[in-house]
């Protein structure tokens, strides 16, 4: 293990050319980019002063694009991106959070069987069947609590709070607090 690789002291200019890093960002762990495979013109764009801590992972499929606004803090965000995940400014993502814009596998059983075979070690992954993806949009100043899961097609409105362990399957209105699995408005939220 190279210590600089886990303390943010590594050379960020070694990242793939389609990763844009804004000014004064801190990227703690080189490993965060281990599963970054985007082939888009820009596959990941980080704004200014974004802090990316150790447990964060940018797992991006070839067609995926992640956009992170200025002043975001990512303590432990696992991004699983097939299409598009967009974070506004000042978003705080706590530990063990997963944000996924796709199921990554088809729902239908026979298609899933084909997917299992195409995903085998050494198999031809171009034979994978299509699966559904829908962009995730997280607006400015949203806070996402420890262990929360944000699933495909959701929009989290400005300033909303996602409670620890919540599983977000639907849009969350601006300023709301949601908790639980599936996530529902917390008592007293938005009243």
């Amino acid at each position: 293990m190279i210590i600089a690789d886990v303390t943010g002291e590594w050379d960020y200019t070694n990242l793939p050319p389609n990763v844009i890093v804004g000014t004064n960002c801190f990227l703690e762990r080189r490993e965060s980019f281990r599963r970054y495979r985007s082939t888009r013109d820009v596959g990941l764009a980080l704004g200014s002063r974004v802090r990316v801590y150790a447990c964060t992972e940018f797992s991006v499929e070839p067609d995926g694009v992640i956009e992170v606004g200025d002043d975001c803090i990512l303590a432990g965000a696992i991004f699983m991106c097939a299409e598009r995940i967009q974070l506004g400014r000042g978003v705080v993502v706590s530990y063990h959070v997963t944000i996924a814009d796709s199921d990554f596998h088809p729902l239908e059983r026979a298609a899933r069987r084909r997917d299992a075979i195409a995903n085998a070690p050494g198999a031809d992954k171009t034979q994978r069947p299509a699966y559904e993806s829908k962009p995730v949009v997280i607006e400015d100043d949203v806070w996402i609590g420890i262990g929360a899961v944000v699933l495909k097609g959701t929009r989290i409105g400005r300033g909303a709070r996602i409670g620890a362990g919540a599983v977000v399957t639907r849009d969350v209105p601006a300023g709301a607090t949601v908790v639980g699995n599936p996530a529902r408005l917390a008592e007293g939220s938005l009243q």
Binding site: R51, I73, V92, S94, Y95, H96, I144, I146, G147, R161
Partner: peptide, 19 residues
């Protein structure tokens, strides 16, 4: 594994002000 003990639900290393 993956247990978290935290002063508030939105904890992060650079602990911003709680909401």
């Amino acid at each position: 594994h993956d247990v978290t003990l935290a002063g508030h639900a939105f904890a992060a290393p650079s602990a911003p002000a709680a909401p």
